[in-house]
């Protein structure tokens, strides 16, 4: 529920200002992009560039509003965060993305599985990576072999299902 704060701390909120700058940049990029579109509005009078322009100005307005709130320190407090677990999950997703087409679904996803588990406190990767790979392989088998969903295969998958 909304928190009633009678005495808002009037302190400049740098993070909020960065958000405001980001919104303004997105708005600017949209304006720049829509400037290069040919005006093919045809009979409607509303061309492909019209809606992006409206949205862009909306974003710029919101950026200004955010900046004002940031300067007045009206932004809500953010919960304290541990960066390490977040980075483990992001790393897991990045590894999966890079390995998917070379190592195959099971290995890549097994690593994601293990890294996520580590972020939530299961630190022993020597145990979680094999568990993850076996689990991902079972899932791969069910979906790609029985349900014919196309999932990338790597050396492990080819070992068990040559030609698959």
């Amino acid at each position: 529920m909304s928190v009633q704060r009678h005495e808002p701390p009037r302190r400049r909120d740098t993070a909020a200002l960065i958000v405001a700058a980001g919104l303004a940049v997105i708005g600017g990029v949209m304006l720049w992009d829509s400037a290069r579109l040919a005006d093919l509005g045809g009979y409607s009078g509303v061309g492909p560039a019209s809606v992006p322009r409206v949205v862009a100005w909306g974003l710029i307005g919101l950026a200004a509003w955010t900046a004002v709130e940031g300067l007045r320190g009206d932004f809500p407090e953010r919960p304290a965060q541990n960066p390490a677990p977040v980075l483990w999950i992001v790393a897991g997703l990045a590894v999966q993305l890079m390995l998917l087409h070379t190592a195959g679904f099971s290995i890549a996803t097994g690593i994601l599985f293990a890294f996520t588990a580590r972020a939530f406190g299961k630190r022993n990767l020597a145990m979680t990576i094999p568990i993850g790979i076996v689990f991902a392989f079972v899932v791969w088998t069910i979906f790609s072999q029985l349900l014919m969903l196309h999932l990338p295969a790597g050396p492990l998958e080819q070992l068990f299902f040559p030609g698959g």
Binding site: G92, T109, F113, T116, A117, R118, F120, K122, G132, F135
Partner: peptide
Amino acid sequence: KPWLYAGILLF
């Protein structure tokens, strides 16, 4: 939680 979220991300 570790297994639950690992599973969620997998699926």
